[in-house]
Each structure stands twice: as structure tokens, then as C-alpha cells.
Design a protein around this nucleic acid. Structure first.
Length: 890
DNA sequence: GTAGGGTTAG
């Protein structure tokens, strides 16, 4: 149509045609579309290929594919490709993929040649159906038709292969393309990203930049999950900057992606910041936040967010399941049940995944009946369903049910690696090496030894079953390990009191480039405490500062204990004072520290301050404070607290509290009172109770009560080596060798091993260990010579050896020699020889210091004018100028 | 673009 005819008047039909065509382009809703459609029919234009094509597309946009089809049917059959393209695109757009493909084959059947506009929709339909076979066929058609290098078709093919998880082919198509735009790159990158090939996604993203292509918001939104998955913090930050630059109105999808990424980094601050700055938030934004907090195990925050959310936005299944998960972990059955009811009222359909979360919530919360009912009702159970219920039974001690369920599970489905991890945790809890070994066999058979978490659980199981060598063997076989592996092995060293190995492990871990986390620090600090490794402990404290863990409450608590057990009360108090948040464990650590140093008054003051701070003492706090009173001879105060515990705080005294109180009475010489106290106990006294009294009898030389108590302990037939040894020693000091032999025989027949007495000290970061009568160290001759000299000096000052402390049936001369070989003396002498004159000495002993060594230490401190700090199994003794800080109550 | 079960840690 020329310009002149347009101006001077068109035939009516053509005017109608062009005005309808214009109207079709500017239609905004379905009602308008229907009006125009009616107009097309009245004008008799409903067989026009161009107009019908437009109508088909418009109906598709307003989600009325059936109308699209009826429009198409008016022109069909047609040789014009335009309506065919429109109908295929319309159907694919409305997710009617098989229908779209049906029209594609009809089109070919009637001999209409598809063009470059046909294929993208057809390819899209194959991808939507997940039909790899058909996809291949269509790809073949494309090649045959010579469209192999078409940009739009290429992009569609990449997208299709990516959605079929065939990144090899996607990449191949990408490589073959002669021309690429940002969409091509985006399709490839988002393909890698959504199939979780994060390294590749990031790699192609860097290639895209090298190619000089400007990333758009689609690029960013597909690369963000990769940054999150790889914890690529630096790249993530750069992307965030890019979003600020190109995201004019803050594209919501990208912002949601940023939120998710920051949660994957564990960076709550920035996630919250992105969220706070968002102008628009949709359900996904809220869900990402609620789920994100949940995944970082910040369950309370997650629930609080949910409460905030429901005022502005209606929760969906995802929100509900996240909250249910939080309720499960917090054991909040009440809220969980409420949310469950809410979702039922809203008519939400629970899929398997959602049901599993619900099941887990009931199982963790202890409503095993509800869990079981849900489990029985579920149609599509997967291994997670079985495991969740199994875990519920295990958590709540229903081991019989757990085992029965496991049997059923084996019949209906294949137990997976996580099932085995849970079975291992049962073995670990009971230290049941037989069950553990059996599970280990299954694990090997099923090939789960490649699973990191299974190996971690195995290491832990063997460690808790006292098989450190087996733990180390498994550890040695592992090619890859994570922070949990290291932490597990460190805690294993801690359990086995193998301090050297513990330090080796933490160093090896750091050499691997792993940064210790809270659990690592909580594993290594007790090793420092145990070993009294002052220097190492201090270094770790420095490290804690650098890592930013100084405000972590459990870490702070472990630091207080470390300093106090390393002989540095000031350090312990210093850490305590710097802690901003303190819990009952923090205060208890401080009270115990004072207790160990015989600072009973300070312990009492701390106890009072704790109450003022609004923290209620728990049963451990009472053990600490009664212990402190006991070691400071504060009998009245201690008894008072014991009464208070029940009357004021409603805490029922446990065996440990009775043991502490018996210790309190008997240690300060009230042996008869202690015995009466024991006989009036509502619990049946165990060996720890009688043992406390017996130690005091021995120290006091009250052999009458000692003999009665010894009989009681023998009657109890305890497996605790220490109490058997104590009884044997008491008989030995009474010279009753017959009884000594009998007790020793019983120790042997029970297969108990006496832990050998040993002492150790740290000099210039090296730890020196001494056993009883040890002659295996280099300077032993000098050490024994020095002890001889000191012995004669002491004799002149009136020292008489306390031969009751020697526990072998030998003559008195020999006994004296044996006393000289006590490990703490060797350590003291060694320390005197190897440290600066006048400097303080610090010695650790695994057992309690005997009365004679206590006396000797006092003499030595005066003769050599040195402070000697000795930590034994119970407390610290500071020997200075011939006296001891404990006032001889040890 | 958001989702489930288990292992270390006092």
C-alpha cells in the first residue's frame, strides 16, 4: 500500500484491517481482546493469517490457550507458517508442552516448513516436558534445516540441554554458535548454576567478562547461587556492588538471590541489611529470610520473623515448613502444633518433603504417637521419613522401637548413610562397641565409607568406646576431611587425655588451612586445662581474639577453666570480667576457680553476685560452691548452702552434692558427723560418698572409722579403680597386709587398671613428665642427688617421713626410698635444677598429693626460698616460706 | 530466586 492511496482513501476492508491490527497491539485485558476478536469475526477477517496469529498470541498472554486453539482452528489447515508459530508458542507459553509438540508434528505432516521462529518454542516445549528423546529429534531437524547457527535457536537449545541436565551438549551448542549474546551466556551459566556445577558457572562468568559482554540482572541472578554454594565471598561482594549499579528499581529476583547468598555465607548482618533496604518484598524474600535463619540454626529469630511476616504477607507451604523445622529443633511442640493446625485450616497440601519436616517436628518434640500416625498415613515415604521417625525413637530412648523400625525399614526400602550415622550414634551413646562394630561392617559392605559424615560418626564412635587407635586408623584412611572430622578427632584426644596428640591435631588442622571454629576451640581448651599447658593456652587465647570468638560464651567459659587449671587465677578472673554475656556456666567456672585456690570467701561472694545478676544457680553451681567451702574449711556456710539448695531453689540434691557435703564435714575433721550424715541420706550411698569419708579418715589417722568405711566400700563391690586403691592403701597404712592382698586380688580379677601416679611441668613450652620412681629421664642422677641433699637439710629442721604414705609391704628403709621417688618430688627437684633461682615453680599431678609430699613441699619452699604451686587432682597448693595456702586441708 | 533427616561442641 503506497502513501498516496493511504491519504486519498482506502477501501473500507483495508482500513478496518489496519485499525484492528493497531487495536490488537495495544490491548490491555482479556475483555478488550474478546471485543476485538468479535470485531474480526464480523469484519470477516478471521481467516487472515496475520490477524489470527496476533489473536492467538494475545489469548496466550492472557492465559486463555483454549481460545488460542479455537482461533487457530478457523484458519486450519493453512500453508502460512505464521499461525503455526503463534499456536505453538502460545501453547508452550501456557505450559501445554505436549499440545505444542502435537501442533509441531501436525505442521510437518501437512507439509508446512518450520522457520527460525518455530524452533525456539518447540525446543522450549521439549525442555518443559523433560523429553530428551524429542529434544534430540528437534535438534536434528534444526541442523537439517540449516538453522544450526541461529542465535535464538542456539540459545533455546542451550537452555533445553541445561534443563535436561546435559551440560555437555549445552556447552557443545554454545561452542558451535557463530554469534552469541548475553542471553546465550546467561543460559549456559544458569544451566551450570541450577545443576549445581558452581565452579563451572563461575568460570564461564569470568569468561563472559573477558569477552567484554556486560552482565545483566539475569546473569547476576544465576551466578549468585554459585557464589553462595562456593562461599565465594569476594565475588559475591563484587556482584552485590554490580546489582547496586545496574538494578535501577532493585529487581526483586536479584535481591532475593543476594539474600540467599548472604545466608549461605552465614552472614546474617548483610542478609538482614539487604532485606531491610528492599523497597518491595515478596513471599520469596520473606521465606528466604525465615529459611535462612533456620539453616543457620537461629531458630528463635526464624520464629520471630515469622511473627513479623504474618502481619504483611500470607505464609505459604515453604514458610510453614520452615517454622515447623524451627519448632522441631527448639522442641516447641505447642507452636509447632499450632502452625500445623493453621496450615490445615488454610487447606495447604503437604507434599512428602513438608510431611517429613512435620514428622521430624513431632519426633524431635517427643510426640512419638503423632509422628507415628503421620508416618503411617504418608503415602510417599522416602528414606528421610524413615530416618526422621527412627531419630525420634532414638532421641527419646525408645531403642526397642527404633530397632524394630530399622528392621521394617530394611524390608521396605534401603537404609542410607544417614540411617547408619544414627545407628552409630546409638552405639556411641551406650559405648557399645559390639553394636558399633556391626554397624561398621554394614557400612563397609554398603560402601558408605566414602561418606564423610559416616566416617566422622565412626571416628566418634570408636573414640567414645575407648578405641582411640581405631579412630585414628579411620582418620588415616580418609582422603578428605572437614572441620567436624578435625573437631571429632581433637575431642577424641581430649577424652583419652592424649594432650600431645591433641596439639598435633590442631596444628595439622591449621596447616591444612582450616580455621578452627567454636567446637575446635571447645575441644582444645580442655586439653590445655588438663595439661596445664599455660603457654599453649595463652596462644590459643590470642588466636581466639584474632578469630573474633572473644564474645562467645561457651568459649569464654572454657577459657576461664583453662586459666584457672593452668595456675593463673588472675587470668581466669580477667576473662570473666571481660565477658559481656555470662551464663550460669560462666559463674560456676569462676566459683570453681576460687574453690580450687582455697578462696572460699571470694567464691561465696561470686555466688551472691550471680544471684544479684539474676542468674539462678543450677545443680553444678551448687557442687562448685560446696566444693569451695569444703576446700576452705567453711563448714557452716557449706551446710547452709546444701540446705538452701533444696529449700530455697527447689533443687533435689544428687549423689555429687552428698559427696561434696561429706567431704566438707570430714575434711574439717567432723568424721562422726559425716558418718551420721551419710547414714541419714535418702539415697543409697555409693563409693564416692564413702570414699570421701575414707580419704579424710586416712588424713586424720582415724583408723577406727576407716576400717568400718573400708568394709562398706568392699561391700559395694565398685568398679571404680580409685576407691579400690584407696581401700587398699588404707589397709596398707594400718599394716593389714592380708586385707591389702585381698583387695588387690579383687582389683586384678575385675581387670581394673590402677592409673599410675605421675607429675608433669612445663618449662619453656616443653612438657616434662615424671612417673613414680622414674629413672628414665636424662638428669635423673642429679635429681636424686638433690633430693638426698634436701632430705638431710629437712631432717635437720625436724622433718620425719610419714611412712604411712607408703603402701607396700616392705621394711622401713625401703619405704623411705619409695617416698623419695614420688613423682611430684622428682618434678620439683627437676624444676629447681632447670629454672632460674628464685623463680616460682608449677607442678601438676594427676592424683592427690600425699601427706608426706605435702610436708616435704613446705620444707623445700622454705629451704630454697621458692614459691611452689602444685595442682593435684582436686585443687591448687601454693607452698611458700614453709607453709601451704590450703592451711593443710588438702 | 526460597525447603527436609544424621555426626563434633559441657
Amino acid at each position: 500500500m503506497s502513501l498516496s492511496t493511504a491519504r486519498c482513501g482506502l477501501p473500507a476492508r483495508e482500513i478496518l484491517y489496519s485499525s484492528i491490527s493497531n487495536a490488537l497491539s495495544s490491548i490491555r485485558n482479556s475483555a478488550e481482546l474478546h471485543k476485538v476478536h468479535a470485531l474480526v469475526i464480523t469484519a470477516g477477517l478471521d481467516r487472515s493469517a496475520f490477524l489470527t496469529g496476533k489473536l492467538i498470541s494475545k489469548y496466550a498472554r492472557f492465559r486463555e490457550p483454549t481460545s488460542s486453539i479455537s482461533v487457530f482452528d478457523r484458519v486450519s489447515p493453512t500453508n502460512n507458517v505464521y499461525p503455526w508459530n503463534s499456536i505453538i508458542r502460545a501453547l508452550a507459553h501456557n505450559a501445554l508442552f505436549s499440545e505444542a509438540l502435537g501442533f509441531y508434528s501436525r505442521m510437518r505432516d501437512v507439509g508446512v516448513r518450520p522457520d527460525a521462529y518455530t524452533y525456539p518454542s518447540v525446543i522450549n516445549a521439549c525442555a518443559g516436558l523433560g523429553d530428551a528423546e524429542m529434544g534430540k529429534v528437534v535438534h536434528q531437524h534444526v541442523s537439517e534445516a540449516g538453522f544450526g547457527s541461529d542465535l535464538y535457536i542456539g540459545n533455546a537449545l542451550i537452555d533445553m540441554y541445561a534443563r535436561l541436565d546435559d551440560m555437555g551438549k549445552a556447552c557443545h551448542v554454545f561452542g558451535e554458535m557463530s554469534q552469541r549474546d548475553v542471553v546465550s551466556w546467561n543460559s549456559l551459566i544458569s544451566g551450570y548454576s541450577s545443576n549445581q556445577y558452581w565452579e563451572e558457572a563461575l568460570w564461564y562468568y569470568s569468561e563472559l567478562k573477558l569477552d567484554g559482554i556486560l552482565p545483566d540482572l539475569y546473569t547476576v541472578s544465576s551466578i549468585l547461587p554459585a557464589c553462595g554454594g562456593l562461599v565465594a565471598v569476594r565475588e559475591g561482594r563484587i556482584l552485590h556492588g554490580l546489582v547496586e549499579k545496574i538494578g535501577v528499581d532493585g529487581d526483586i529476583i536479584v535481591r532475593n538471590g543476594l539474600l540467599s547468598m548472604y545466608f549461605k555465607f552465614g552472614n546474617v548482618t548483610d542478609a538482614q541489611k539487604v532485606f531491610d533496604e528492599m523497597v518491595f518484598r515478596d513471599i520469596v524474600s520473606w521465606n528466604t529470610l525465615v529459611c535462612g535463619y533456620c539453616q543457620l540454626r537461629l531458630f528463635e529469630d526464624s520464629i520471630q520473623l515469622f511473627r513479623d511476616m504474618i502481619t504483611t504477607c500470607t505464609p505459604d507451604l515453604l514458610t510453614v515448613t520452615s517454622v515447623l523445622r524451627a519448632c522441631g529443633h527448639l522442641g516447641d511442640l505447642e507452636l509447632g502444633t499450632f502452625v500445623h493446625d493453621y496450615s490445615e485450616r488454610k487447606g495447604m497440601e503437604f507434599d512428602t518433603r513438608a510431611n517429613n519436616i512435620l514428622l521430624d517436628m513431632y519426633a524431635k518434640g517427643g510426640n512419638l504417637l503423632a509422628a507415628r500416625q503421620l508416618f503411617n498415613k504418608m503415602k510417599d515415604k522416602d528414606s528421610v521419613s524413615w530416618n526422621s521417625l527412627l531419630n525420634g525413637y532414638i532421641l527419646h530412648g525408645s531403642y526397642g522401637e527404633a530397632m524394630q523400625l530399622f528392621k521394617m525399614m530394611k524390608m521396605e526400602t534401603e537404609p542410607d548413610s544417614i540411617t547408619h550415622v544414627m545407628l552409630l550414634s546409638v552405639s556411641t551413646q551406650f559405648a557399645d562397641i559390639y553394636l558399633g562394630g556391626e554397624v561398621h561392617c554394614h557400612i563397609v559392605k554398603l560402601g558408605f565409607t566414602i561418606d564423610l559424615r559416616v566416617c566422622n560418626a565412626l571416628i566418634d564412635m570408636y573414640a567414645k568406646c575407648s578405641k582411640l587407635e581405631d579412630s585414628l586408623r579411620i582418620f588415616g584412611l580418609m582422603d578428605i576431611c572437614d572441620i567436624v572430622t578435625w573437631n571429632t578427632i581433637i575431642s577424641a584426644c581430649n577424652h583419652h587425655q592424649d594432650c600431645c596428640l591433641g596439639f598435633q591435631m590442631i596444628n595439622a588442622m591449621r596447616n591444612e588451612g582450616l580455621v578452627p571454629d567454636e567446637a575446635s576451640l571447645l575441644g582444645i581448651l580442655p586439653i590445655c586445662s588438663l595439661l596445664a599447658a599455660k603457654q599453649q593456652g595463652k596462644e590459643i587465647h590470642g588466636y581466639i581474639f584474632r578469630l573474633g570468638f572473644e564474645s562467645n560464651v561457651p568459649v569464654g567459659n572454657a577459657l576461664i577453666e583453662m586459666y584457672s587449671k593452668c595456675g593463673n587465677l588472675k587470668g581466669a578472673v580477667g576473662v570473666f570480667e571481660l565477658m559481656k554475656v555470662k551464663d550460669v556456666v560462666t559463674w560456676t567456672a569462676l566459683i570453681s576457680a576460687y574453690g580450687m585456690y582455697g578462696e572460699g570467701q571470694k567464691a561465696l561472694k561470686a555466688f551472691a553476685q550471680m544471684e544479684v545478676a539474676g542468674i539462678l544457680p543450677d545443680h553444678v553451681a551448687f557442687i562448685a560452691i560446696i566444693f569451695a567451702c569444703s576446700h576452705s574449711g567453711m563448714v557452716e556456710e557449706g551446710l547452709n548452702l546444701f540446705d538452701c539448695m533444696k529449700n530455697k531453689y527447689n533443687i533435689e540434691p544428687r549423689m555429687e552434692h552428698y559427696a561434696c557435703t561429706v567431704d566438707l564435714l570430714s575434711r574439717s575433721g567432723h568424721l562422726t558427723k559425716a558418718e551420721d550424715f551419710i547414714l541419714s541420706m535418702p539415697l543409697k550411698p555409693d563409693a564416692s560418698i564413702w570414699g570421701a569419708l575414707l580419704s579424710a579418715c586416712r588424713a586424720n589417722g582415724n583408723m577406727k572409722i576407716a576400717e568400718r568405711v573400708s568394709k562398706r566400700i568392699i561391700e559395694l563391690d565398685t568398679d571404680m579403680t580409685g576407691y579400690n586403691v584407696l581401700v587398699s592403701n588404707v589397709y596398707a597404712s594400718m599394716g593389714k597386709w592380708e586385707q591389702v592382698r585381698s583387695v588387690r586380688k579383687s582389683i586384678r580379677s575385675k581387670g581394673l587398671k590402677k592409673s599410675a601416679g605421675c607429675s608433669w611441668m612445663e618449662i619453656k613450652k616443653r612438657v616434662y613428665i615424671f612417673g613414680t620412681g622414674d629413672r628414665s629421664f636424662e638428669q635423673f642422677e642429679e635429681v636424686y642427688q638433690l633430693l638426698d641433699i634436701l632430705g638431710s637439710l629437712m631432717a635437720k629442721q625436724g622433718y620425719v617421713p610419714d611412712l604411712q604414705c607408703v603402701l607396700h609391704d616392705v621394711d622401713d628403709d625401703e619405704k623411705e626410698d619409695m617416698l623419695c621417688g614420688h613423682s611430684e618430688r622428682l618434678a620439683i627437684a627437676f624444676g629447681l635444677l632447670n629454672t632460674e633461682p628464685g623463680s616460682p615453680l608449677q607442678i601438676m599431678k594427676n592424683l592427690r598429693v600425699c601427706a608426706d609430699c605435702h610436708t616435704v613441699s613446705k620444707y623445700i619452699s622454705s629451704i630454697v626460698q621458692r614459691e611452689i604451686l602444685v595442682r593435684d587432682a582436686n585443687r591448687f597448693h601454693l607452698f611458700k616460706n614453709g607453709a601451704c595456702s590450703c592451711g593443710d586441708r588438702w
